[in-house]
Design a binder for these strands. Structure first.
Lengths: 198, 198
DNA sequence: AAATATAATAGACTATAGTCTCTGAGATTA
DNA sequence: TAATCTCAGAGACTATAGTCTATTATATTT
């Protein structure tokens, strides 16, 4: 890496860390791009050279969630015996991570961004680890007769994803005023019962 | 009503109908406030005198959905015998209305607005007819033993509302690329099964 | 080493939602 | 009917995300 590339990367890093720090302090909507470039002694040109938009910085952070799925959650699921147990533990860890590490304002901002038709969607990317993990769990559960087999595992993932989104959306508009960890079981158990074979 | 009040109302009506017409033609985000006031030969002052924001006009239209619940849906539910049948028919009519009459872009815009923390929320208003109707149905179903009784009817409404929202949110980010009427049964049946007594 | 190319950055500019203040038509009071 | 009041509306102004273009430091080529 030559000098120029080093400077470029340094600029990007500076903007990214400063922006995320400010977002955490004051909330996404109360931080302006002008403030970010002023605090980092850079410029509009630099900012938009590195990020497609103000929202884009957020995505950068949110994408970490997928590392979390693969690195933190997946290993913990291995020892569990039933697909149902895996699914429930997965959901628990996901909710815990979102509630404790991401927080509702980040979540809200992502959900808002996804509704913006001009920008590319993160949720619609079918290669997200989230979907792969869920699909694997459902396949396993269908094979051993735990889950219903009249729907494909893909459809089961779609159904569950919609419920998860509804739950997180509700949490977002309610500004994190209830606990994901505490309340998720009530909702997900209802859905999981509907997904099980009987 | 004196002359002045008449003129005021006429201005509001002109702005409202023109705005909604434009939104239908080009989509919410492609219509500017400047365009609306130009087409109606009014001004920023007039516009913001009548509406709190550009989004606000949308709400005006969306609130119709509650009239629809009360006037169109409610009477049709009366003759049905089981609470389950009422619930399923209610959901069918709601999905049909949203898909055919509101459309995905209106829906998307409302969902986006709800995530905006500066504005007051429509979804969180607990007096919406939607919630009353659902609560009534659940109460009836709990009384006659169709639905589970370990959760209050209020909680059942919360659970179902979250699922409905997840479904409509998904429809919104997918730009209406699937049919609410066709697909709602798959998801809601899963949830309703989880809500029924067994 | 000089000439040329490239691409990151600076910052002026644009688009657009929303605010602020002043004005005048029409209502009210005397 | 003259004087006063009021509030809807006009439109200049502000805030802020994002675009466009010129500059210049660094890299590459000759």
């Amino acid at each position: 890496m030559n000098l120029r590339q080093q400077k470029t990367m340094e600029t990007k890093r500076k903007i990214l860390t400063t922006a995320i720090k400010l977002f955490n302090e004051k909330g996404f909507s109360h931080v302006t791009v002008d403030e970010i470039i002023e605090k980092t002694s850079t410029s509009k040109g630099a900012f938009y050279n590195h990020f497609k938009s103000k929202h884009d910085i957020f995505l950068e952070k949110f994408k970490e969630i997928d590392h979390f799925y693969v690195n933190e959650i997946l290993p913990k699921l291995k020892p569990l015996k039933t697909a149902e147990a895996k699914l429930k533990y997965f959901l628990y860890l996901e909710m815990e991570y979102i509630e404790k590490d991401l927080g509702w304002d980040v979540t809200r901002t992502i959900y808002e961004q996804e509704l913006n038709t001009e920008r590319e969607s993160f949720f619609l990317d079918e290669n997200r680890p989230l979907y792969h993990i869920l699909k694997k769990i459902f396949e396993e559960g269908q094979k051993n007769g735990e889950f219903r087999q009249d729907l494909t595992s893909e459809r089961l993932v779609v159904m569950l994803s919609r419920v998860i989104r509804g739950f997180l959306y509700d949490w977002s508009i309610k500004k994190g005023s209830f606990s994901l960890v505490d309340e998720h079981i009530e909702l997900f158990n209802i859905v999981i019962e509907g997904l099980m074979k009987r």
